[in-house]
Design a protein around this nucleic acid. Structure first.
Lengths: 100, 100
DNA sequence: CTAGGGGTACGATAGTTGCCGTACCTCAAG
DNA sequence: CTTGAGGTACGGCAACTATCGTACCCCTAG
């Protein structure tokens, strides 16, 4: 089952920049960006040095910033970037940040 | 007298994104960016709907993010973007955000 | 059936942020 | 010299954020 994500039209730049202003979250986004296949990836495959509940918190922040989609597969959850949608709403932002 | 600003090498992306994640501060930066002359501008010339002390707070945030320089002229203070320096440290970031 | 991995929700806490008012400074104009 | 505009520093407050632990859920491997 898919987690509900906001329509990108309703996401504002404030929320996006705030969400990207966290090193853990930015790292996750960059890792997803590096995998050009755009394939889904297990949430557990990122080694974030925080507790489980904090991880959940960060995934929510990224979801609410329109950056990711998440799917709950019962045992694990999977994540993928909303790359095209996001880039249509905030053109160039991700690639610029990826380049820094 | 110039306010002391950080060396851009010591400014991290976190601080920059946080500083740009505020609508008042982002608006100021964009206004400065629009004036291609790069000339100094009076701090008082921005009509920020906040108190004097809050304004001071925002200017400090922008200074510490390496985005601006400020000069105290006794009666008023003046501000200018650190455009070239900033762009050398975070290439494309400002123009991307300006384009959104 | 029972463990264990992966995950959410909730509640708590410490630190940060945006905001304000007050006190005080500096220069320019009257 | 006094007033006013523009500004800083400090202290306080409310809201938000990053973090955690605990309780609980779902699925798979034994």
């Amino acid at each position: 089952m898919e987690f509900t994500v906001p329509d990108l039209a309703e996401v504002d730049l404030d929320r996006v920049l705030k969400s990207l202003a966290d090193p853990h979250r930015r790292r996750v986004v960059l890792e997803l960006l590096e995998d050009t296949s755009g394939a889904e990836r297990a949430c557990s495959s990122f080694d974030l040095p925080v507790s489980k509940s904090t991880r959940t918190h960060h995934w929510r922040a990224l979801r609410e910033a329109g950056l990711i989609r998440q799917r709950d597969a019962g045992n694990g959850t999977y994540v993928r970037l909303r790359l095209d949608e996001f880039d249509a709403r905030f053109p160039g932002l991700l690639s610029t940040i990826a380049g820094l």
